[in-house]
Design a protein around this nucleic acid. Structure first.
Lengths: 193, 193
DNA sequence: AGCTAAACGGACCGGGCGGTCAACTTGTTA
DNA sequence: TAACAAGTTGACCGCCCGGTCCGTTTAGCT
């Protein structure tokens, strides 16, 4: 299908700065950031953006993709960690700390726009599930928690913080700490649903 | 300023169905729901919408207002409740259960668009703070929690659930339970920030 | 019933968006 | 260095949105 001819030098450069600009802009303004603004920030023309990514959605997918890849890589490492409880927490901190506003959007079905994205998500999901199971075996977290629970909850601090007027840059740690405590095995009663 | 002449009968009817339609539409599609769609759903013309609310923001404010008023009323009641811990939880459940997607947006400065909204928010905040303090005095939740923490966290379940493909209608209870457990006094170590 | 002002509604406007295109520039290769 | 393909660009298109306006309808009063 795609003949993988190597990218021309300037094209590669533009692609990189485009990705950086998109990451920043999406982080600051959310998905509503306009393509024109992103292009301006990257110092390239709007047309060039669409040459690299046929659609704004594809651009977002690319941005989100390497976040997920990074997280998945970390998760894979952490599976081997000696103490699974702290390892799980470390992963959640990495997730909450690095992303800002991108949030949970990557959970949406990519609709085949980007098959790589679907793979990465599946991969991340598998690693997190393994991590969770190890943490449960070690008695670090309650047994009725799933990998999905963790994925969902690790994004909550960012969401919550995004609504406080002048958030301290690491305020998210506060809410992550509370949520992580909620995962501990001495909680009251079984979880609904 | 505003001479409070009583509303004409049809105008009152329209205003009511407009509010209902706006509530539903905002809940389903978020703030991006178009005014035209809301008008159509209410069975009125678009111009009529702007007659009742000069701006889309004002319409949202009105919708949000009675959510907050309702919550504030409940909070005020619950302050007198015999067991403050469950009372606080009940409030958080009411907040998480009734709203869908409106989320935390009401925390944004209304910018004077609607002074009533600011008042209601302040009122809710005060009642929740009182509730929290009583719960702390009873040893039901950890002492380093603020009213703001509770407001933020009680909206998280809804956010989180909105990203799962086919959520059970009360899946939010699951995440609220986890979060509420995180508020309990036997958490590990002091909270950051 | 008849009158008036309140209320209605939809064509219309300006602006911003995602996406396209054809003329132009530039890296690459022989 | 010549020539071509790959890459760039910004003007442009169509669409949709929030908001306006004015001709029309209608509730309420006498």
């Amino acid at each position: 299908m795609t003949t993988d001819r190597p990218l021309r030098a300037d094209a590669a450069r533009n692609r990189a700065s485009l990705l950086a600009a998109a990451t920043a802009e999406f982080a600051e303004r959310g998905f509503d950031a306009s393509v024109a603004d992103i292009a301006r920030r990257a110092g390239i023309g709007k047309g060039t953006v669409f040459r690299h990514f046929p659609t704004k959605d594809d651009l977002l997918a690319a941005v989100v993709l390497d976040r997920i890849d990074g997280l998945a890589a970390l998760a894979r490492e952490l599976i081997e960690a000696p103490s699974p409880g702290p390892a799980l927490r470390q992963l959640m901190e990495a997730a909450a700390g690095q992303q800002r506003q991108l949030d949970l959007s990557f959970l949406r079905e990519a609709g085949g726009v980007n098959a790589r994205l679907d793979d990465a998500r599946t991969d991340l999901f598998a690693s997190i599930t393994a991590l969770v199971e190890r943490a449960q075996a070690a008695g670090a977290i309650r047994p009725d928690i799933s990998g999905l629970d963790v994925i969902l909850l690790m994004c909550a601090p960012n969401y919550v913080v995004s609504y406080v007027p002048d958030p301290a840059p690491d305020l998210w740690r506060r809410y992550l700490a509370i949520i992580f405590d909620g995962l501990s095995p001495d909680g009251a009663g079984p979880l609904p649903a």
